[in-house]
Design a protein around this nucleic acid. Sequence first.
DNA 1: CCTTGACCGCGAACCGGTTCGACAAAAGCG
DNA 2: CGCTTTTGTCGAACCGGTTCGCGGTCAAGG
Lengths: 337, 337
Amino acid sequence: MNIGEIARRAGVSRSTVSYALTGKRPVTEQTKQRIQAVIDELDYRPNAAARALKEGRTRTIGLVIPPASLRLTDMQLGFVASVVEAAAHADLDVLLSPSGGDHDRSFERVISGRRVDGVILMEIRLEDDRVTRLQRTGLPFVTIGHTANPHGTCWVDVDYATLISRCVYHLADLGHRGIALINRSAELVAAGYGPAHRALEGFTGAITRRGLDGVTLTCADDAAAGETCIERLREDHPEVTAAVTVNEAALPGIQRALERANVTVPRDFSIAGVAARHWAEDFRPQLTAADVPTFEMGASAVELLLERIAAPETPAHHLLLTPPISLRASTGPAPAR
Amino acid sequence: MNIGEIARRAGVSRSTVSYALTGKRPVTEQTKQRIQAVIDELDYRPNAAARALKEGRTRTIGLVIPPASLRLTDMQLGFVASVVEAAAHADLDVLLSPSGGDHDRSFERVISGRRVDGVILMEIRLEDDRVTRLQRTGLPFVTIGHTANPHGTCWVDVDYATLISRCVYHLADLGHRGIALINRSAELVAAGYGPAHRALEGFTGAITRRGLDGVTLTCADDAAAGETCIERLREDHPEVTAAVTVNEAALPGIQRALERANVTVPRDFSIAGVAARHWAEDFRPQLTAADVPTFEMGASAVELLLERIAAPETPAHHLLLTPPISLRASTGPAPAR
DNA sequence: CCTTGACCGCGAACCGGTTCGACAAAAGCG
DNA sequence: CGCTTTTGTCGAACCGGTTCGCGGTCAAGG
């Protein structure tokens, strides 16, 4: 069921079939129809490997995801979904590659051997081996998140530092003096995970500029950790009346712990942060937060990647988004002493 | 940077390089080392398209997921993660294809053109076009879930009917007479979504066999819907003292509504069901439920697919899992009248 | 010394598309 | 009518691997 078979049955040459399909040279309407009839009859589809071999491109992009054994966070899932969506829209296929853990083989396989035309990387560390590896190979790539020194790379990210700063200012304006940062896990901070670092950066910056009393905590990405985190906070730092967080997965636990301690939000305690919209709206009361525009980010990543594939020598673009903070119901004036 | 270049620099023929790499014919240790040195120096990787073209297989499998625009449920995410994991383990790549909605082009592209060696399909409907399409093409495939008439197809599924029956029996044994089924959304039921139908089947069967009083409800896959569902249930059917559910995403809402109505679980109301472990353990009190073994199912699906690819003419296997129901804390004796 | 066979390596064909130069027939033009 | 241009099709080369048949080399055995 190859192009030769079609050509024989239609009584033309293989090249004519090819031209009829791609339209790169004119073919008489009549022959075109004869060819199409044979194709329909045999349900013929050109072999993707053969085409890729000759054309030198695969019309496929790689998407490197965190090791699948870890449960993906909602935000990561949002990126994956939007990248897949945007790629489908551009008639591209998406090859998935789990990375990290013992999956380096998979990563290696996807980026080498010309299996993909470009790669989208997520969960970027400040120093990221995969980024340097990709730079060496010369394969076009775009990262969601950015490294400590992102010059010359193409990326799209949320400006965590600015957003967390704004949250702190907002709380300070409401009269809060003791504010805690509930960051991502200690492991992620130690590993140099970008969002965690930049959140910390934005937090300490805002705290010093306003002369406030800042407490920073790390917290694993799950509800249980959120609970113990709040318990610890209330015990060790009773002076703290508000918190900002970038740890959306901890939110349900945070809520539970506050309820159990009979702390009413926002009367007794205010909380704000950065989270996917869905987490903010599921919080009770709904969370004042910057909604991470995962959909837009994934779509932009694909768009940037396509530009990069089309013109690899072009100077690298990037996109640093600062979505507005949606005022919902979880922040209020500091409680009177 | 092709095999010819390597051959030239190592002073051997292209075929020798190929044999040195694949090991399909003996090559002297000495030449092998010389070749390897050149390969390391140039960081050469064989072109995947060329290899696929000649070998007639791509070492890639397709994974058809629900349209990415919908938020994937935790269970679906679990399947994706475990399939990717298992595939990576078998040195296979995974090509993602969103299906449904306006994504038929993507599906078509992935299954035709010999882009993949086989396909794993999830979110199967009782009558599923994609399954008949795949049967026509002759491409090996395995489904997670099964159609109404699954003979001759390869699949792995959870026995929802039996599990829900068992839940009902368990509750009946505890003295409950009025039991509700909180099913998936009305749309899914209408669309012939397998698990929703089979849950209903198992429920009504068990209810009639025990001569109980059954109420069936549909509920969208989110917390808010779970809340209104419980509210409606308590209003319209006060005689109901227990519920079984296959709607894990509704659980947080169910919990919230029960708490707000001051209904203590399991003293006043019992609840059991089928859910991914994580949802059951996050419920308060922890949910008595059959834990859907998403990891095992994804791995089995890959395994079955590999068998099928190796021996397409072999009679089709399937795997119907009935995981044990984990007794946790959400079921207890029916309240006294 | 010649034969035998194991062992290595080479050259060529092949997988299934795309693409380029060539060429015949038809069309346009003076 | 002869000449150029256009149009539609063909044959062959190419992409970068794998694979098969062939042959040269060398050690063992008669």
